[in-house]
Design a protein around this nucleic acid. Structure first.
Length: 431
DNA sequence: AACGAACCCAACCGCGAGGCC
DNA sequence: GGGCCTCGCGGTTGGGTTCGT
């Protein structure tokens, strides 16, 4: 059963690349850059289609590719990002330095998926398998459940991912709304002291700046001052719900961390991977996902080996900062009113440049409240945002990925409400 | 040693998005 | 606005390798 010919003409070579071909491609790209992939093969003297060349380069020849075994941190990051993003391998790959999306995809399909299944966790929904969905163990992907079950699982996973991204988006919007309100209040106070007949308060930087603060995907319009008050109220309510949803959605991550670690230690003995592996930015994200609301005490007795006590304590200490940091973020989101005096109102000039605006909206206000230690975590707190941003497009950078998933505010509220209860994730997994 | 099954991964395919004319 | 082209993504597969009998 041969494959149907690719879009390219016949006569082009297919299949595994020879060292000579690799050399040609490498030499050409090193000298000229890849340029247009379509015309590259001819210029480089290769009997391949451009697509094949691009694939070979991005997945194999690129110099900044790390090959070999995935570390524990990388595995955990993949699992956690997959829980958040689903099968968005390229987005996941942006948080695993030097790993390609193809490699991650393969690793997921050949290792992690099976391991999760073995642990009784549905690799699609990232939830413990319920009896109704079939208790099939490894390799039981198609064994039980049937089409309806699979569809249900996919839908649940989609909803879960949608909810989490939408939660993040709402938090960002609510934060922007609060900042806008604070700026308006500040401007109002200033103008009131200047003249009683002054025009109504405006967004610092003028209408144009106000317009730029609008979230392109938002259901809120910060520049419509007439609706501002009610919108702010609404945004706050949504953000509060979103914060709760986010916390709930992130709780299974902790179970994953512990479960994976246990699993790894059973498989590989006591080989301990250095959690503080320098330069591995994703670890910050991993840590950030650890939510303190599901207490460590709840998990430890059921899952921790005695000989791991010292290491676990160190880990707890390490995650304590992140927990506090995350709690502070959540309390900021949840707080009904920020003390005006304690909030640094950004100067108007902080917004005009599209570059700075992009940054401030992509990582909304988080950096304003982070300690240097947690800054690294902050930088990956909204992991996929930058993955989807074009350098020129603010809209893209602010918009959450997979726009089709976040179509309406109606579906949004449904999503938030439909977040599975935290207790759905039993921390006491048996291996 | 031989064979089949399972595993693994590089590479292919189809599709959609975005840019350009 | 619509067609064409290029690129990137995710799903899938073919074939090499390893494992088990």
């Amino acid at each position: 059963m041969g494959r149907s010919p690719c879009c390219e003409k016949d006569g082009l070579k297919k299949g595994p690349w020879t060292p000579e071909e690799d050399q040609k491609l490498l030499a050409y790209i090193e000298q000229h850059g890849h340029g247009c992939w379509r015309s590259l093969p001819a210029k480089a003297g290769l009997q391949r289609c451009g697509k094949s060349c691009r694939l070979r380069w991005t997945n194999y020849l690129r110099p900044d590719i790390k090959r070999g075994k995935f570390s524990l941190q990388e595995e955990q990051t993949i699992i956690q990002l997959h829980a958040l993003l689903g099968n968005r391998w390229s987005a996941i790959a942006t948080h695993l330095p030097k790993r390609t999306d193809n490699e991650i995809k393969n690793y997921w399909n050949t290792h992690l998926k099976k391991r999760l299944a073995k642990m009784g966790i549905d690799p699609v929904t990232h939830k413990p398998r319920s009896g109704a969905l079939g208790t099939g163990g490894a390799g039981g992907a198609g064994a039980g459940g049937g089409a309806a079950g699979a569809q249900h699982a996919r839908a649940a996973a989609h909803l879960s991912h949608t909810t989490q991204w939408e939660s993040a988006r709402l938090e960002a919007e609510a934060r922007l709304a609060r900042e806008a309100r604070l700026r308006a209040l500040a401007a109002s106070a200033a103008s009131a002291s200047a003249s009683v007949s002054a025009p109504p308060p405006q967004m610092p930087g003028g209408p144009a700046a106000a317009h730029r603060l609008d979230s392109p995907t938002s259901t809120l319009s910060f520049s419509e001052s007439a609706a501002l008050a009610s919108v702010l109220q609404e945004a706050h309510g949504a953000a509060t719900a979103a914060a709760a949803a986010t916390r709930a959605a992130m709780q299974p991550m902790q179970a994953y961390e512990v479960a994976c670690k246990e699993q790894q230690q059973q498989q590989w003995g006591d080989h301990v991977v250095n959690v503080a592996d320098a330069g591995f930015a994703a670890a910050g994200f991993t840590g950030l996902l650890l939510d303190g609301s599901l207490s460590q005490q709840d998990l430890r007795p059921a899952t921790r080996h005695d000989e791991d006590a010292a290491e676990a304590d160190a880990g707890l200490q390490e995650t304590e900062e992140e927990k506090n940091y995350w709690d502070s973020i959540m309390s900021l989101v949840n707080s009904s009113s920020l003390p005006t005096s304690s909030v640094a109102v950004p100067a108007p000039e902080a917004y005009p440049s599209s570059a700075s605006l992009q940054t401030s909206m992509a990582m909304p206000a988080l950096e304003a409240y982070s300690s240097p230690a947690s800054l690294q975590a902050t930088s990956v707190a909204m992991p996929a945002l930058e993955a989807y941003s074009s350098s020129a497009s603010l809209q893209t950078s602010v918009a959450m990925p997979a726009p089709e998933a976040y179509s309406s505010s109606a579906s949004l509220s449904t999503s938030v409400i439909a977040v599975p209860a935290p207790e759905a994730y039993s921390p006491a997994l048996e291996f």
